[in-house]
Simulated scan of single mutants.
Amino acid sequence: MNTVLVTGAAGFIGMHCAQRLLAQGLAVVGIDNLNSYYDVALKDARLAQLQSHPHFRFVKLDVADRAGMAALFDEVRPQRVLHLAAQAGVRYSIDQPDDYTDSNLLGFGNILQGCRKHQVAHLVYASSSSVYGGNAKMPYAESDAVDHPISYYAATKKANELMAHTYSHLYGMPTTGLRFFTVYGPWGRPDMALFKFTKAILAGETIDVYGNGQLVRDFTFIDDIAEGILRVLDKPATPDASYDALQPNPGTSTAPYRIFNIGNSNPTVLMDYIAALESALGTTADKRMLPIQPGDMHSTSADTRALQAWVNFAPSTTVRDGVQRFVDWYRSFYRV
Rank of each mutant, 00 (worst) to 15 (best):
T7A: 12
A9Y: 00
A10N: 02
F12S: 00
R20H: 08
L22K: 13
D32R: 07
D32S: 09
N33A: 07
N35E: 05
S36D: 14
S36Y: 08
A41N: 12
A41Q: 13
L42N: 03
D44H: 12
R46D: 08
D65P: 01
L82N: 06
H83F: 07
A85E: 13
A86F: 01
I94K: 09
P97E: 03
D98M: 02
D99N: 14
T101W: 03
T101C: 14
T101V: 10
D102K: 14
D102H: 14
H118M: 12
Q119I: 01
V124T: 05
V124H: 02
Y125F: 01
S127E: 05
E142Y: 08
D144F: 08
A145C: 06
T156P: 12
N160M: 12
A164Y: 14
T175C: 05
Y184G: 04
W187R: 08
P190Y: 09
P190V: 03
F195C: 11
D218Y: 08
F221T: 13
A226M: 00
K235G: 00
S242R: 02
G251M: 03
S253E: 01
S265G: 02
V269P: 02
M271R: 11
D272F: 07
A280R: 01
T284W: 04
D296Y: 09
S301H: 09
L307R: 00
V311T: 04
G322M: 05
Y330W: 12
Y330A: 10
